[in-house]
Write a protein that binds this DNA or RNA. Structure first.
Lengths: 244, 244
DNA sequence: GCCGATTTGTCCGTATGTATC
DNA sequence: CGATACATACGGACAAATCGG
């Protein structure tokens, strides 16, 4: 469950916010009170508070206290910029998921591909193109490029099941950092065909670079979402202030 | 310039990454080396490193060091989920900006508006609708709802100049937290008219709740961007692990 | 495979500054 | 003004992961 002390305190406080023990608008107990309550140092309490703030639940105010500004229960699960898998997402919005692989092949990174993916020219890559169906209707396209050496045993069948689970459970390659760009673009002919739509259609496009716990960029993903299936949440804080 | 010690160290290291003194793929000097170099505690160095990591420039690896994974110079200025004003954005992409206010009125928050904006029913709000032109072409629409009591002296003229500068310079109300949702939606007739486009057009829509340094939500913004002017960057880390 | 040195992660205690009330 | 609250900064200690001999 809780991996560290401050993580445990974070979860405890979050649960108490969720249960409206500390409703939106109120102040949490002061740092010194929390220090006494959890029998730990103030540093540890501050890390837990920093987690709450960076996830958008609270805001720290000098001389006043820590104000609750968000209820986790509001508008379903609030997952600010989280690394949520497609399967988790579908379950959250209460739809069934099916995945079809429309491409699965090994390629060598050339100049053009390197420009797009940031992989080095000559790298051996595994290219997997997936169509995701929610309640049997096409919802989004995922084009994955993996660094072959980092994903042994990633078969077509595994890709259609859950890439995320494979990476975490089989490879134990904990995803550490993901960098993402979001744009809105007109759908190409082939995208429209794969998503079974006609006419003028725009898609939410995501470009992600994923790094594993070895610090190696091992995955590039180009996602194209039909507008009705795309919703992104984000929390921005001024510098990174507050509890840090 | 640098408000704090760790902020100064952060800027120094970032500049050295930018100038390729530490190229992508290499490791930064160890924390103990940096501690000696900057003549400060390890805690302070770690805060600076946490900033680098949370902004996507580095990744900390236990037992190895801190690896550089991003070059600030790549693809222009990289501003992950930052609170960047429209004026700053325009300057960054090298275009002139003009703002026209197409609505400026005081309203009282009713049930429907409360649902959308999270303000309380009965709150006195200032509604300002803006069209932003980049190089004299319409690029985006901003509908702002301000809590009247929090923005005295926000005239139509000020709104057309720079709301952001007014908030920071005049009110000294430093923006602290901003929560944002991004979706893609079909443009309404009135939006198409304001943006001077025809046919089927989709827009990138943003919904933001902004909190000031008093912990009060004082602004709700509904932004609608023409696709060609919308580009959002984001960095996600696993729990929020690493440096800090 | 083991061991020791290195490096980051977690945690503690304390002191001082600054803003609020 | 004093008391309270969070922000910054210092120091030290131990754990866990990595790497080289």
């Amino acid at each position: 469950m809780a991996k560290t002390l401050f993580d445990g305190i974070y979860r405890t406080l979050l649960e108490e916010i969720r249960s409206e023990q500390y409703p939106v608008g109120t102040l949490l107990p002061s740092e010194s009170e929390l220090t006494r309550r959890f029998c730990c140092s103030r540093t540890t309490v501050r890390k837990a508070l920093a987690l709450l703030a960076s996830n958008g639940y609270t805001q720290s105010l000098v001389g006043k206290g820590v104000r609750v500004i968000w209820q986790p229960s509001q508008e379903g699960a609030f997952a600010p910029g989280s690394l949520e898998s497609v399967n988790e997402f579908a379950r959250r919005i209460g739809k069934s998921v099916r995945t079809k692989a429309i491409a699965y092949e090994r390629v060598v990174c050339d100049e053009a591909l390197s420009e797009r993916t940031q992989f080095d020219v000559g790298d051996e890559l595994l290219y997997v193109s997936l169509v995701r169906y929610f309640d049997d209707k096409p919802a989004l396209l995922d084009d994955h490029y993996f660094l072959s050496s980092q994903v042994p045993g990633l078969t077509k069948e595994v890709a259609e099941h859950s890439i995320f689970k494979y990476l975490e459970d089989v490879l134990h390659a904990r995803i550490a950092v993901s960098k993402r760009t979001i744009t809105v673009e007109k759908a190409s002919k082939s995208d429209k065909a794969a998503l079974e739509v006609r006419g003028t259609v725009f898609l939410a496009c995501t470009y992600s670079l994923t790094y594993n716990s070895d610090g190696i960029m091992f995955e590039y993903v180009w996602g194209r979402y039909l507008p009705e299936y795309f919703c992104f949440h984000d929390v921005a804080t001024r510098p990174l202030m507050g509890g840090w």
